[in-house]
Design a protein around this nucleic acid. Structure first.
Length: 320
DNA sequence: AACTCCCCCAACCGCAGAGAG
DNA sequence: TCTCTCTGCGGTTGGGGGAGT
C-alpha cells in the first residue's frame, strides 16, 4: 500500500469544477503565480485537494490551451510521436504546446487507437506504413525511447538556458514541455508583465468556459454570484471595479468581455508578437527521421533548424 | 417520449522522482 | 543515507450527453 490519497480528507470536494471554483483558482494564481499547490486550497478556501487544483490549472485553465478539434497535422504528430516514444504523453505534449498531455492521451485512446486499428484491419497501405513505423520503433525498446526523450528534454533545457535573448519564445506557445506549472515557475516571475498577459489569457479561457456553461445550463448560475475578484485581479487596467462588488451574471460577463477587450488592447502587441513568433512552432512539422536524428545527433543546431523548417508531410507523405 | 447503449473527456488514483531537512 | 513532502506522470474511471431503438 502506498501513501493514502490526498483526497481522503473529510470535506474535500471531488468531481467537476464549477465556474466559481475556477474563478477563485485563477484569481489566486493571477496574484501568486502557479506553484506551491499545497497552499492553494488553504489560501483560497477551495474545498479541493492541491492535486486537484494543479490538475485543473494545467489541464484546463492555464493560458494557451487549445481544446478539441485536433488538426490533421496534430493527429499525425501524435501518431508518429507515440510510435517513437510510446505512451509518454507528457513528452509528446511537449511537441504540441497548446495541447495538454491529458488531452493527447484522451484523443489517442478515443480516436486514434480506433482509427489505426480500423486502418490496420482494412489492410491498406496506410496501416502497413504505420505498422512498419510501429514495429521499427518497437525495436528500439522502451529504455531507448526513454533515453531519447531524456536527451530531448536535456537539449531543450540547454537551449532554453542559452537562449536568454529570446524570452518571448519560452511560453506558452513553445516547444517546451507542457507541464506548464513548472514552466511558469521556472521562467516567469509572478509579477512580470509577460505573465500578466498569460494570466489574462487564462481568464479568457474561463470566459469561454462560462459562456459555454451558460449556454448549456443557464439556470445554474446564481444571480448574485460575484465575479469581482477575477475582474479586479484579472485586469489591472479595468475601470476600478470594487473587490466587494456583487454582479449579476450579465454584469459579470460584461465585465469579462470588457476585460478581454481591454486585455486584447493592452497585451495584443506583445501577444501578437508571441503568436507570430510561435506560429512556426505551432505549425512546426517534425519529420520522424529528423526527429530521431536530432535526438541522437550532437551536432543538433543544423538539424534543429531543419526540424523547425521542414514539413512533416515531406517525410511522411507515404504514411497517410 | 422513454429507455438503453455507447462515446467522450474531465477528473481521479496511485506510483515514481526530486528535493529538502 | 534515510525519511518525508511535494509535484509530475500515466492509467483508469465515471458522469454527462448524444445516438439509436
Amino acid at each position: 500500500m502506498g501513501r493514502p490519497p490526498c483526497c481522503d480528507k473529510i470535506g474535500i470536494k471531488k468531481g467537476p469544477w464549477t465556474p466559481e471554483e475556477d474563478i477563485i483558482l485563477v484569481s489566486y494564481i493571477q496574484e501568486h503565480g502557479p506553484g506551491n499547490w499545497r497552499s492553494v486550497p488553504t489560501n483560497t478556501g477551495l474545498m479541493r485537494c492541491s492535486k486537484s487544483c494543479r490538475l485543473r490549472w494545467t489541464n484546463y485553465l492555464r493560458p494557451g490551451i487549445k481544446r478539441g478539434n485536433f488538426t490533421d497535422h496534430e493527429e499525425k504528430m501524435i501518431i508518429h510521436l507515440q510510435a517513437l516514444l510510446g505512451n509518454r504523453w507528457a513528452a509528446i505534449a511537449s511537441y504540441l504546446p497548446q495541447r495538454t498531455d491529458n488531452d493527447i492521451k484522451n484523443y489517442w485512446n478515443t480516436h486514434l487507437k480506433k482509427k489505426l486499428k480500423k486502418m490496420e484491419s482494412e489492410g491498406g497501405d496506410d496501416s502497413n506504413n504505420y505498422e512498419k513505423g510501429n514495429s521499427c520503433s518497437q525495436l528500439k525498446g522502451q529504455w531507448e525511447r526513454r533515453l531519447q526523450t531524456d536527451i530531448h528534454m536535456a537539449k531543450q533545457a540547454l537551449c532554453e538556458a542559452l537562449s536568454l535573448d529570446k524570452p518571448t519564445q519560452i511560453f506558452p506557445e513553445t516547444k517546451l514541455p507542457s507541464t506548464s506549472s513548472q514552466c511558469f515557475h521556472d521562467h516567469h516571475h509572478p509579477t512580470s508583465p509577460n505573465q500578466t498577459s498569460l494570466y489574462a489569457s487564462s481568464t479568457e479561457n474561463i470566459a469561454k468556459l462560462l459562456d459555454n456553461w451558460m449556454k448549456k445550463s443557464p439556470n445554474k448560475i446564481e444571480k448574485n454570484y460575484s465575479f469581482s475578484n477575477m475582474v479586479t485581479t484579472g485586469s489591472s487596467s479595468s475601470e476600478g471595479t470594487q473587490s466587494t462588488t456583487t454582479c449579476t451574471q450579465e454584469h459579470a460577463l460584461d465585465s469579462l468581455w470588457s476585460f478581454n477587450s481591454e486585455r486584447s488592447q493592452s497585451v495584443s502587441a506583445e501577444e501578437n508578437t508571441n503568436l507570430v513568433e510561435s506560429k512556426p512552432n505551432l505549425e512546426t512539422q517534425v519529420p520522424l527521421m529528423l526527429l530521431e536524428n536530432w535526438l541522437f545527433d550532437d551536432a543538433a543546431p543544423q538539424c534543429n533548424e531543419d526540424l523547425m523548417n521542414m514539413s512533416l508531410e515531406e517525410s511522411t507523405e507515404g504514411l497517410f
